[in-house]
Design a protein around this nucleic acid. Sequence first.
DNA 1: CAAAGGTGATAGTATTACTATTAAATTCGC
DNA 2: GCGAATTTAATAGTAATACTATCACCTTTG
Lengths: 225, 225
Amino acid sequence: MKNLLSSIKISVPEKIFLKDPESSDLGKRIIEHSILLIDEIGFDNFTFKKLGTKIGSNESSIYRYFESKHKLLLYLTSWYWAWIEYQLVFSTSNIPNPEERLLKAIEIVTQTIKEDYDFSHVNEVKLNQIIINEYSKSYLTKEVDSENKEGYFEVYKRLITRLRDMILNINPEYKFASSISSTIVEGALHQHFLKDHFKSITDCSEKVTPTKFFQDLTINAIKPK
Amino acid sequence: MKNLLSSIKISVPEKIFLKDPESSDLGKRIIEHSILLIDEIGFDNFTFKKLGTKIGSNESSIYRYFESKHKLLLYLTSWYWAWIEYQLVFSTSNIPNPEERLLKAIEIVTQTIKEDYDFSHVNEVKLNQIIINEYSKSYLTKEVDSENKEGYFEVYKRLITRLRDMILNINPEYKFASSISSTIVEGALHQHFLKDHFKSITDCSEKVTPTKFFQDLTINAIKPK
DNA sequence: CAAAGGTGATAGTATTACTATTAAATTCGC
DNA sequence: GCGAATTTAATAGTAATACTATCACCTTTG
């Protein structure tokens, strides 16, 4: 898996960046260190000036790649979901049993990333933490609708659509296939957050994973009555 | 209901404010118009200066009530959840059947507020919209843990605990009572957001409510096998 | 070898999220 | 009803943010 992943290129909607960060050394350093810095100080406290200092480069140079820190967040989140989508497609394609396939898919979208896949300059463990802590901020804005039209959330929506199709494949009569899919993906991030900060309102922990919870929930919900 | 609600006082953790906004005319205007303004321009674009202009008062006067706009958001969200909790307790107390009671509780926490209850100076319809669009921002910060210790999220956690207890009352063996409760509350906000901005990944609409989805989901999940 | 593109350095702007100080208005205790 | 205390308003000021603009240098490429 590791080797295969290192050789493919994750593709992110082009309009998100001004200049493709994959196209230069500076661009890759921006991605690499923005992940480390956002994980460290949080997106709210993150600035291009601080990032410039970290990578020994200039604020103005970073603006040549991303027109704002918000666009950089959109880039990182799109990259993450594209990476998850790749894993999902790859690891479910050879499972013939629809229920088994769905369980695997739920595992992929709800698990904590524990291992750094060393996908070039991206630290996936820390990126996963950023998604848990900051993903909502990428769409909870007054500009969602226009940014959605620009296609900035395509990857995320496509991932949820794939999950939905696997559910409908098991039970085409289930009325809430889209809603349960979006609930699984968003809800898993939330449960991960709760187990780190609000333990009293989750059953999830190191032993009981969000994966188990959502697998159980989904199987019971979609079974024909 | 309306009359009853107008006569009780919703109580918010004291440490959230510097001076109780309920204690003065200016305080009430701050609450009233902050709801209108945040709903209008979004929390990110909201400033005390703009609010001051709206209410014909001064920025510095608002700082006497709240030490930051973040604290004001915590106040509004605590107020909202306390109000929901009150409705929950009130409207389930006389339902003897545990399953019926749970279904009612899910209805309360997942419904859209469509009617302005005219609870003094609070516009509940717009406050509900603010919760949908901004609630996550109140806890997705680097300061969650210390603010949690201060008790700023008590009301929210208590509400989820109440839901959990109703579920355990039906099936004490169900392993994920806390997780499903937090998923219902958070997930309902998310589904409301999706139906307004990302229609393709939800089944919810004007006709199919998040309430129906979560009632169906929960009943199937918690039934003893 | 010259032109083009990429990067770095510096400066500047409007706005934000506050703090501090003082003055004016209002309310309260007696 | 008056003086004291509290509340509010007005002004000014600060450090940081989220950029934009300009220019110089350095490298790559045709």
